[in-house]
Design a protein around this nucleic acid. Sequence first.
DNA 1: CTGAAAGCGCTTACAG
DNA 2: CTGAAAGCGCTTACAG
Lengths: 341, 341
Amino acid sequence: MKELAAELGVSTATVSNAFNRPDQLSPQLRQRVFREAKRLGYNGPDAKARSLRTGRSQIIAVILAESLTYSLNDAVASELLSGIAEVLDEQHHTLLLLSGRQSPGQLPGSMSIADGFIVYGLMPSLELIDTLPPSRPLVAVDFNLDNQPTVHVDNLPASRAIADHALAQRPRRVGIITLRLTEQPCNGRVTEDLAWLTSGQTITRERLDGFYQALEAHDMAPASVPVWNVEENTHEVCAPVIAAILDLPDDERPDLLLCMSDRLALTALTLAEQRGLRVPEDLRLTGFDGIAEGQYRAPRLTTVRQNSVEKGRIAARIILGLDPAKDQRLDTELVIGESCP
Amino acid sequence: MKELAAELGVSTATVSNAFNRPDQLSPQLRQRVFREAKRLGYNGPDAKARSLRTGRSQIIAVILAESLTYSLNDAVASELLSGIAEVLDEQHHTLLLLSGRQSPGQLPGSMSIADGFIVYGLMPSLELIDTLPPSRPLVAVDFNLDNQPTVHVDNLPASRAIADHALAQRPRRVGIITLRLTEQPCNGRVTEDLAWLTSGQTITRERLDGFYQALEAHDMAPASVPVWNVEENTHEVCAPVIAAILDLPDDERPDLLLCMSDRLALTALTLAEQRGLRVPEDLRLTGFDGIAEGQYRAPRLTTVRQNSVEKGRIAARIILGLDPAKDQRLDTELVIGESCP
DNA sequence: CTGAAAGCGCTTACAG
DNA sequence: CTGAAAGCGCTTACAG
């Protein structure tokens, strides 16, 4: 820039103004600056210097509780990111992706470059959050953080509603499949010795509480309903647990599975098909999330649609100061598919 | 930092060294610096200033030819990003996500903050690439860029191989479904008046050339094989085109569909199921990519597996200087599923 | 082992 | 409409 200014015989302030404040100089001079810049291969002010000087980088960091690998391949996280990206794009901001699963000492220092932080999901340790610059905006998605705005859906009433729907036609045997319900990792049937996370800690617990309310309303004892847990919402991790359920003898196998995610329900659907179990005749399935894949397979999933894209949009709008920085709760929608009519 | 140094009675250089060069000061002093830093709420050197001073930000930008919304929801792009993220994480770098679909004037200036650029897929205009700082490393993925290293698979032989496999059992009627083959957008049957992109421009054309070689090797005239094109690799955009194919009268409907992506093949599979067409008995299907979803549905897809995660890893390694900056070609693997045994 | 000083490339309030 | 100057918060070569 200095070089360019010298070449043009103007000050660096003028060059800077040419790029940032068109009204501060004549259009002719501005054009001359641009022409000369192009000739010298100067593509505008350096972002590093600009961000140091102005204090803003136009970068928003998204901190994901899961690994990036998992999040990028998870439909719900991808939709959330889409919504965020959409708003950031519009507002000429960019997206920096970070995982909260870093070893504590290894946090990339580049984190602090961001103008704001969207934190998605409860991570193993909140330590990371403490190291974020306190002056910059932060919004939590799908979990609660003291004194910070959060964007989320009302999990309990939503899961209550879908369970009510499913239980209206009385099943012989119900089963529930949860995601990361227990304090200790568990892939399989949840036994009594395992402690559960609280509903303040995880949306899984909120959803389970909704199921339990519905069971009670239908005169079924929650304690009599077996719960299986899965640690990761991927086909690979879900499949063995679900296979074990479906391979139970006919008089033990549930004919209704309430699943905490569409991925779980879809995996159950695939494994049921492979075993010649008909859905919904032999096995009814409900999901949660409303991901696209669940709606374009046959049978379509009965599920709770949460608008993850919109969740992302709102989080981004709060971070950018376009929406007020307060808690936002999104509505959900019960979607009745053929998997549990 | 100045404040912290003053508080401690040392110079800012010492504080800086405490964070960056442990060997430059006594452990005792270092601990004292950390304690005091914590007390004052100082979380280490500011990334903006550091990056300006050192010239490096520890940020790598990925520029996606498609919109972020599309890319985040596309399995292949997500796998690529996973591979990139995995290596960047290890190396304490972070990922900045950018779309190449920006309106030209609206490019976020924050782009130039990155230490290197991974460009995925051919974008509508190469203008954007010209504005990248020429001194920083750049690697292209899945397309060619003059004088820049590229990471890609050998599309032509791979598609030749899968078509050879499919044609070995002679079909009555073959159909081909392409992705963005034509210069002008086209969703549906490709008519003669539409110009095709060249194989230098798009991997779609390379794949089509592979199909054509296989057709000729099996004494079938490529010109006699109908080609349908789809502009976006999503269920929503693919479905109407494929529905039209499947709804052709029995004596016109292909009994073998060579699809350029697994998404296309999976959409065909779903729509075929809905119409009571049996796969592979009534309709054989081949895909391309080898995404997970294609391998855990029944029937599993016959496809070409390309290791997109590894592609991402390699691109990241090149950008970080861990691998030599030269063209890398990855092997593919023919996967025989039940959709075309 | 520690500190004084230069400078990374900008933007901006201010003076002219 | 234009320019001189300060300073954003660091790192680093160098002197001590």
